[in-house]
Design a binder for these strands. Structure first.
Lengths: 234, 234
DNA sequence: AACTGCTGGTTGTTCAACAATCAGGGGGGA
DNA sequence: TCCCCCCTGATTGTTGAACAACCAGCAGTT
């Protein structure tokens, strides 16, 4: 029957529909706003964020601001002390060392996974992030270039195929942005990596594992050095 | 002078004093209580935890309960859906697979770090956790034995010397306990590992890397299989 | 110069209320 | 009979105000 066919069709369409993302709550939107403000440089590392002031500024209640803070604290963007409130986290050289050690461990081993054939590359996301970075660079948007760079490396780690590792790495990447904030000249830092990432991307797609590995390691070593220096300078 | 000497002495004693841990807030204590209740089996996986009921039961306000929930959610002990509240997290077979993949990755590579001499072992913590496990087993406390087992493996990962990796692993270990909760016979599961862990511990201290590696891998494979089966059975 | 005690401001927590949303249980209509 | 809509009760999301606990800094004392 027509009705049955139509019903089947509807049924299929419904099954394909991705489950609707839950409405962002006020606390979530507040967290997004604060996060963006940190990334764009509005709230500098070390700055205190009094609850009352933020509640007034964002037009939400103090309790909601607190909920937003909890989220950002778990993202390691805010530091918290009992009875002293929250401040924008300040990266120390030790943090930079730790972060890059973990990046080396997980990004380089991802290439080994590819080499051994234990995993395969989804080059779509990788290419997208390269393009996004180049576009941001062309528009002189170095915050955006940083975002694309971090996404590029997250895509590499995604090769492992572990949801938990991906989540862990996303947090690491969020912390990295605190390091980027300390850079005195984001342009000089990011510009070389726009082509560097494109090279690595090509190596990976062509299966030139040795070259990809070497190029990635060079990136990590050089970047760590620069970020550590920038972070130490304050 | 007497006074000067006394003052110097006081000064030294003050310098040695560890900074006082901040008072646990009500939200923190509430989180501890809920966590312990989950581990001891009071709140089963899948159980809903209405805010009002918990507030009444714990004798704190609803806002405080919410703060406690946020913490436990970041520990992956509670699952949360907007407008639906929180439930005790239920581990799926996919979760078990992911967790053990990460455990293999990080625990086995820790032994390689030791073998290569890039890191050295602090055998104190390792031995302590072995002893704690045996003591708990002797007292028929299999929740405690699970705790000790998880700590033992966390100590292995600590070889990497990365604070962030340690934190990540602690979360993984917390999730593991949800898996332990699904076991029908904790005794049968944990008892063999009391001696197994002691063996691994000895291998590591004596520098028998190959044997340590093999024994650890056997443990991980066998345990994954058992926990996955237990988790699938509900 | 060092210690003591205040003081203003911030955080920790509670309470009560209302809006938004969900789960489940009837009626109507086909 | 089956399906859909709507209603209802219960739970969560958010607010605003209030008070206690606590911190940093300043002033006064010795």
């Amino acid at each position: 029957m027509g009705s049955s066919a139509a019903s089947d069709h509807t049924r299929d369409a419904l099954a394909d529909l991705p489950s609707l993302a839950p409405l962002p709550t006020a606390a979530e939107r507040a967290a997004d706003l604060i996060r963006e403000n940190i990334f764009q440089g509005g709230f500098r590392p070390g700055a205190a964020l009094p609850e009352t002031a933020l509640a007034r500024a964002l037009g939400v209640s103090r309790n909601t601001v607190r909920e937003a803070y909890r989220r950002l604290i778990t993202e390691h963007l805010l530091a918290y002390e009992v009875h002293k409130g929250v401040t924008v986290r300040r990266l120390a050289p030790d943090d930079v060392r730790d972060i890059y050690r973990l990046r080396r461990m997980h990004e380089l081993s991802a290439i080994e996974e590819l080499r051994s054939g234990a995993a395969t590359l989804d080059d779509g996301g990788l290419r997208d992030s390269v393009v996004a970075g180049q576009r941001a660079g062309a528009a002189d948007d170095w915050v955006g270039a940083g975002t694309a760079d971090l996404r590029f490396h997250a895509e590499i780690v995604a090769v492992h195929g572990s949801p938990r590792l991906n989540g862990f790495f996303r947090r690491l990447m969020t912390e990295m942005r605190l390091g980027f904030l300390a850079l005195t000249d984001p342009h000089a830092f990011h510009a070389p990596y726009l082509v560097g990432n494109a090279d690595i991307c090509e190596h990976l797609i062509q299966g030139r594992w040795d070259q990809a590995h070497a190029a990635l390691r060079r990136y990590l070593d050089a970047a760590e050095h620069e970020v550590a220096r920038a972070v130490a300078h304050r």
